[in-house]
Each structure stands twice: as C-alpha cells, then as structure tokens.
C-alpha cells in the first residue's frame, strides 16, 4: 500500500475522466467526516485508477464545510447547500455532479468499510450490472453492533418492501450503493423524496426502468453517533413507500 499513491492523489489534479466518483452526504459531520475521508482516500488511491471525491454538504450548521476545505485535497470537491434539504437532496446533488464512469454513495460514518468498494465495482464493471447495492441482509453479510430494535424493524420493513412493493432488494437502506453514471443521473433526476427513504424511491425506479440490480453482501458497523431516530424513521419510511406508489400511479416518473 504505497503512500505515494495517496500523496499523488492529494496533490495532483486528475486530467482524465474519473473511473469512480465517491459521494459522501454530510450534515453536521465535523466529528466524523475527516476520519472517513482519510480512510477512503488512503484505500481508493491504491486501486490504481483516477477517481474523485465529492462531499455533498446538506446545509451543515457546524464547520463541516470549512474542515473539508481545509484539507486541501485537489481531487475532492465540496458541494455546498444554502439550507438543509434532507440526506436525499445531498446525495442527489452529489450524484448529478459526479463525473466518474461509476458513482458510489457512501455514508459519512464509514459504517460500511471502504474496503468493500471493489465488490460493488466488480459487479458493474465485470458483470454488467447497472446498480450494485451494498446489503446487510444478503447471504454472507456481516452486521456488527446493531441494536435488537433495529434488527426487528429492519426485518419487518424488508418483508413489506419485497412482498408488497416488489423491490427486488432485501436491504434498501444501506448507505453504500454504486451506479453507472448513466443510471445515477437518470434515477436521481426523477427523485422526489429527499429524506431518509430516498433510497427506496431510487431502487423502485431502478426496478421500474429495468436496470440490472445486484445485491452485494457487505460488512456494516452501527457507527456511534448515528443521527437516525429509528421509530420516527420507520413511520416516515412507511409514509414514503405510499408516496412512491402514488407518484407512480399519477405518472410522476414518466
């Protein structure tokens, strides 16, 4: 793992089209973002291809943006938002700004270790999938430090998503997903849900538009300081499921 690869990525702007763009949505992430950027930059710089990092700020009230700017990483862009619009809006902004052939969205807490990126990339690059979804529910996945409440709720929601909404993915909410740029731009252009369950709408659309979706087992750690209020988010998730279905029936996604 030569340090020189990271040092070059840090200081020399790439001139060709990136093979990979990584989008990290960030809202008040001053405590977590720098370590995650470090882990990602160190690992991906060693994979041997041009890549870029996008921090999609979501109107943070803390100094997340200033901290990121201060790192002076030439291949990292910080996308600013004037106000907080929800995690989905930050991901959307990042996905639409990405220049890479493939685009990964990864959570700011590194809860799925970046070392898992090659599994998703291989699915798109070598097996011609359009979307690769990191999954904590697929066979072979490892879930560390997840509370019992979250396990029960996740199981119930997975059942509804699969059997009532026919989304062919067991884990819609894992913050580790990769798309071809074409798929990312089409799906996120149609996106209407900007909150926590935006993933659900994107996967519903991916299925509706006939994109080839792979579910890839990844390890996942329930990172400390998670901003998810489980009970509230379940209510919103169910409401958003209905919104997606109604949108479709009204022709919003045409």
């Amino acid at each position: 793992m030569p340090y020189e690869n990271y040092a070059r990525w840090k200081t020399e702007a790439i001139t060709e089209e990136p093979k990979l763009s990584i989008v990290i949505p960030a809202y008040n992430e001053r405590e977590r973002i720098v370590a995650t950027i470090g882990a990602i930059a160190s690992h991906v710089s060693d994979l041997g291809f041009p890549w870029e990092l996008l921090i999609a700020d979501d109107g943070s009230k803390d100094d997340t943006v200033a901290l990121c700017d201060d790192l002076h990483l030439v291949n990292m862009r910080v996308l600013r938002a004037p106000k907080n619009g929800g995690k989905g809006s930050a991901v959307q902004r990042g996905m639409l700004a990405a220049r890479g052939t493939y685009v990964l969205f990864a959570d700011a807490d590194n809860s799925t270790p970046i070392e898992e990126v090659s599994k998703l990339l291989n699915k798109l690059e070598k097996e011609s999938f359009d979307v690769a979804v990191g999954s904590r529910a697929a066979e072979g996945a490892e879930e560390g430090k997840k509370s019992m409440l979250r396990k029960i709720l996740s199981g119930g929601l997975r059942w509804i998503v699969r059997h009532i909404f026919f989304i062919p993915v067991k884990d819609t909410q894992c913050g580790f997903k990769m798309y071809t740029r074409e798929a990312a731009q089409k799906l996120h252009t149609k996106q209407t849900i900007m909150g926590f369950s935006f993933d659900l709408e994107i996967l519903y659309l991916a299925s509706k538009f006939g994109y080839k979706i792979a579910e890839v087992p990844v390890s996942w750690i329930d990172a400390p300081g998670s901003k998810v209020d489980t009970r509230k988010e379940v209510q919103r998730f169910l409401r958003d499921l209905m919104t997606v279905k109604m949108n479709d029936l009204k022709g919003v996604y045409r």
Partner: peptide, 12 residues
C-alpha cells in the same frame, strides 16, 4: 501506523 490510520493522523 498502517497507511489508512497514518493518513487520518495527517488529515487531523
């Protein structure tokens, strides 16, 4: 220090 942790120490 392994490289990822070295980079985190540097960035912080």
């Amino acid at each position: 220090l392994q490289q990822p942790v070295r980079v985190i120490f540097e960035l912080t």
